[in-house]
Write a protein that binds this DNA or RNA. Sequence first.
DNA 1: GCGTTTCGACGAAGCGCTTCGACGGCGCTT
DNA 2: AAGCGCCGTCGAAGCGCTTCGTCGAAACGC
Lengths: 350, 350
Amino acid sequence: MATMQDVARRAQVSLSTVSYALSGTRPVSDATRRRIEDAMADLGYQPNAMARGLASRRSNVLALIYPAMEKGLGGTVAEFVSSAADTARENGYHLVLWPFRTTQASEVRDLVRQGMADGVLLMEVALDDDRVDVLHEAGVPYTMIGRTRDVTDRPSVDIDFGRTTDDAVGHLVDLGHRHIALVNHSQATVEDGYAPTFRAEEGFDAAMRARGLEPLSLRVDESPEAGRTAVGRLLDAEPRLTALVTMNEIATFGVVAELQQRGIAIPGDMSILSIVTSPGVGAMSNPPLTTMHAPGAELGRLGVQKLLSLVDGSRPSTPNVLIPCALEPGSSVAPATHGDGRPDGGLPAR
Amino acid sequence: MATMQDVARRAQVSLSTVSYALSGTRPVSDATRRRIEDAMADLGYQPNAMARGLASRRSNVLALIYPAMEKGLGGTVAEFVSSAADTARENGYHLVLWPFRTTQASEVRDLVRQGMADGVLLMEVALDDDRVDVLHEAGVPYTMIGRTRDVTDRPSVDIDFGRTTDDAVGHLVDLGHRHIALVNHSQATVEDGYAPTFRAEEGFDAAMRARGLEPLSLRVDESPEAGRTAVGRLLDAEPRLTALVTMNEIATFGVVAELQQRGIAIPGDMSILSIVTSPGVGAMSNPPLTTMHAPGAELGRLGVQKLLSLVDGSRPSTPNVLIPCALEPGSSVAPATHGDGRPDGGLPAR
DNA sequence: GCGTTTCGACGAAGCGCTTCGACGGCGCTT
DNA sequence: AAGCGCCGTCGAAGCGCTTCGTCGAAACGC
């Protein structure tokens, strides 16, 4: 493998001049630059990443601490990872995968100290997350995807659960629905401090109350069976239910199956709006679900950009961003009826 | 950040002794080793990855060239990536993501020359793939997930499509089915040189012929609509069809929807066996699909292990491995009937 | 015409580690 | 008692690059 020294010899210049020509840190005359470029091309020269990293104290590597991917298929996660890797690549960085859960803060610290990564992207942040503290103390640039409980002064990008749930409820209410329930993620996720479960619940409740409606929600395990059971429990609690907001992909399929088995038509008798889901998942249902897509790719891109702005202070640091999910029409949402085919009445007085 | 020199000073030994204590390359007395370990613990020392890499010419990084993830949700892919990252981590390696398609062979070569990775894992290899040639010529250790057309002397791990399709057909034939069709991936994947489409078709045809049955298969676009259309075309071609082998997740959902709409019961009138699919996808259907799960996690683990055995020649190099998909019972496969509820007859003479 | 900038290029000192050759002291043999 | 080998340790030479200080020569001012 050709070294910079080889290039220098061939171009009849000193090693340092080659370095300056490559980095542009100091001016190099056009004639010299051309000779150097020719030499590099002839030799197929590529700078050695390790040497560069050692000398410059910059590895050009970003680390992505990503979730265990145990629950669910991770369509959004895959989308996110892919987009983050692309964006890193476009900016001359590598993306390395660090599979660490919330409890492995010390492993994260050790790895960070090895100087392998210039910055860290942290996915699926828990409400209280030691990994974030470790990164903060270590002084490594980092960006959270998601947010801890208290997010002041901690760089992050996240889904805007408030707006997403409000948009979802608003959409259904506009169609005349008044009795709407949320099929949320499981109690287990809550105990793990999984933030989306909290934020969706809060957002849904707020959105309902803001419209003078009574929120009803259930934490449901991530399984089709749990989804089936949930249907019964929800209908017992509120028989007048005409719409469901679901943010639990696996359970949603159980919900759909159970409704169909009970002869409750989708969307005739019951509308289903699946939120924070991944592209393609809605299409797998019959009828195809109306969904609100999680902005996985966008978060990946913005997360990396934000992180890079911290890594090389040159770029201006952007404020924290929240992105709502986007409504994608399907065939599982329709105007509300009273069960007799007549559209529901107007809004109650607020 | 503490350096090895700091540790040496604190432990009252020379720099090189610390290095030997850490690597075990040369013997170090117990007393000295203890002093060094104490010093490292006191200082919270972690060896610098770049310096180590430069001096040893080993980065402890493996690169994963992964597919664009455009088509489909990539459940299997996510599983694979996750398992590969875990296995790398367990062996003290980092996994970096290199998003490059088949056409970007020169980018791959440049990156390899930068010495960032000690080895390369190549996913979704096409039947003819320049990236493989580039890696071969560069002399970098690599392992393919999947296989090029000619696989002799090229390290790889892959799904055993032959056994998977044979198991699938065998399972259905054991249940009395005689008229079985394959819903394959699209013509577009064939044109991209996507190997699984070929290998599944070959395997299915062979499995059918080996049992004296006439193979019937269709290349179907990756969309529910295409799946719906396929049903009509297949039934036109062979009205006596009682079972479908599908290896196109998205299309499968269309197939199921169309069958149900036509009043063809699953599995009463038509059995569906979804092969090379990812865990959880089957559960999303109603009834839950009987599937043959792609061994994503296993391939990830074996791929990394194989690659590592090439990277540090110490481990013995294993022969190439093919792993079949495993049958996971669901509710979409049942014994064949003649449409009148009676089981089908025995096997025809071979 | 000579001092003073300015520009472009050079040499050398690291970055923090691995690894090779060497060497002192110990226990053993003869 | 002298010689030998071996174990544990040390010093120094890089690995391939970045970056700082410097310096010669061309360009400029008065």
